[in-house]
Nucleic acid binder design. Structure first.
Lengths: 140, 140
DNA sequence: ATAAATGCAAATAGTTTGCATGCCC
DNA sequence: GGGCATGCAAACTATTTGCATTTAT
């Protein structure tokens, strides 16, 4: 499953290392977005030597290579996830809980924007913020 | 124009201070989103004593009070703008240039999401990322 | 008067960088 | 072997917090 990732890197002159593999594995298993620190902690259970600097370097490297996606989920920080999920996030800005939004719901919208603005929209980065039903109740 | 803001705060037991007024004024004049540091520098021309800590505190206070809106424009940081503009951002993730998106284009979409998810979507926080026409050319 | 807000300084969180060492191909 | 990648430590940026002082109401 991640064999193609390895090949992809090698063809471009990069290497697959235990650290890179471990990060990919953790994110595959998680199946959802994780913050750099969460990733670091989980990887350290497998590779005790892993440092934060390497996590940050590896995350942006893998994102450049197209193996990961970065997304905003509030608080001003980035989270990362495996590519290919084709979904978006709807985050509660009070409690932080999140929902996934199907990509198909947005496809038409993108096309509209792309035509009217000329931008090539990278749909994977899209995040909506709002108040979840629970927090709406507590708000009153 | 900002008189209503002042009244709004007073009624809730808060005060209108020179610092808060200066930040509101700067953002009104700018008419666009600014980063905390940009705001701090501009305010310091009027109030030389203004500190970064106060800027951050004031920005989140005014945002809580609904007088300002925070938005992501990439790089993981937040920018702020005066409420009531009713527009959204489309940011080029390569060169950082930005376009505004009319709110009406998104209204239908919000309603759909709100019904299907139960979230009360705060449309003002929405930002799209993509590649602007210029950077698409340079990319090839 | 009194509670809210500020200024200052220090602490914290998140992220990046330099450089010597290690390790994949 | 050669160069990419890592680990460590330190630097840097953005943001938050504690506390004494000031100030709006």
């Amino acid at each position: 499953m991640m064999d193609t990732d390895i090949e992809q890197l090698r063809q471009r002159g990069f290497r697959m290392t235990p650290q890179r593999l471990a990060i990919l594995r953790v994110l595959h298993q998680a199946g959802c977005h994780l913050s750099p620190l969460e990733i670091c902690h989980q990887v350290q259970e497998i590779l005790p030597g892993m440092t934060e600097a390497t996590v940050y370097r590896t995350l942006s490297f893998l994102t450049e290579q197209g193996l990961l996606l970065a997304a905003h989920i509030g608080g001003g920080q980035l989270v990362y996830e495996i590519t290919g999920h084709d979904h978006h996030h709807l985050i509660c800005r009070r409690c932080g809980s999140s929902q996934q939004i199907e990509h198909t719901l947005l496809r038409t919208l993108y096309q509209q924007f792309q035509e009217s603005t000329g931008y090539q929209i990278d749909g994977m980065h899209v995040t909506f913020f709002g108040l979840c039903p629970e927090c709406q109740k507590n708000n009153k």
